[in-house]
Simulated assay, not measured.
Amino acid sequence: MSVDREKLNALLKWYRKEVGDDLVAAIIVDREGLTMGAISGEGDKSVEEEIVGGLSALVEPVLERITKEFSSGSFGTGTFDTDEYRLIFCEAGEHAVFVTVLDALAMVDPIFPLAYLTAEKISRIFDGRPVSPVIPSIKTNETEVKIERELNKLKKIKTETGNYAFKLILGGDGAVGKTSMVHRFVEDKFESNYKGTIGVSIMKKQCNFEGLNTNVRFVIWDLAGQT
């Protein structure tokens, strides 16, 4: 099949501009897994070839898995996460699949509309229909993006199996609920009668995370309120 690769490359460059720093690479492959177009988040050509070459090997087994699960050969869209990347797969008509490779901490929701639109344009190019490479900007809430990235960082933290001990020290104004909060955490109950802490109160809490085969012991120092 003869495809206008110049149009594909122009479209991918515009896509890189709109996605921004979270983009690691964008790859267009046909149904047999042959790369028809690719671009990396880096501007350097030699770096781009190295990155895309390595990621093509990553994408290939996932594509095989998709085509096996969807015997009709039509799967629409899909996402996959690895330790290093987040991948978005979009069907681009009958002949191609558009793959977006993102940083592991990237927020995928704002990128989905861009990926959908780009996949539709790729389909038009494969069909020989006229299409503009321009991809409109989509405004995102920067605060939400930052929060999502921080949450993704926490998800990527791997806790080693074992026993851990932490000391927590609570300090602050009196009668604000420090002791009530500690009792709620340690004993799962709430004391309705307020009694101010004198000096310091020390309580302990053992937490067992069976799925991680990890035990954590908290020693909580509840300091008397400061006036």
Rank of each mutant, 00 (worst) to 15 (best):
D127R: 15
F190N: 05
M1E: 12
T179P: 02
A10Q: 11
I39D: 04
V108T: 13
I28A: 07
T159K: 11
F80A: 12
R149P: 02
T35H: 04
G93S: 08
K153D: 13
V145K: 10
R16C: 06
V131Q: 11
L154M: 12
T100S: 15
F112R: 14
R124D: 05
T35D: 04
S72W: 03
D4K: 07
K204W: 11
G76V: 04
F80V: 10
Y164V: 03
L114C: 05
L23V: 09
F112A: 13
M107S: 13
P110T: 07
A38W: 04
K45F: 08
R5C: 08
E64S: 15
K155W: 04
E60N: 15
D188N: 15
T79D: 01
P113H: 01
I202F: 12
E91H: 12
L63D: 11
G211V: 01
K139E: 15
E32V: 12
F80R: 11
I28K: 00
E160Y: 10
E32H: 14
L58I: 12
V3A: 02
V176N: 07
N9E: 15
V176Q: 06
I39W: 02
F166S: 11
R86F: 09
M36T: 06
T159E: 13
V200L: 14
I198K: 15
L8A: 03
A106T: 00
I111T: 03
I66H: 10
E94A: 13
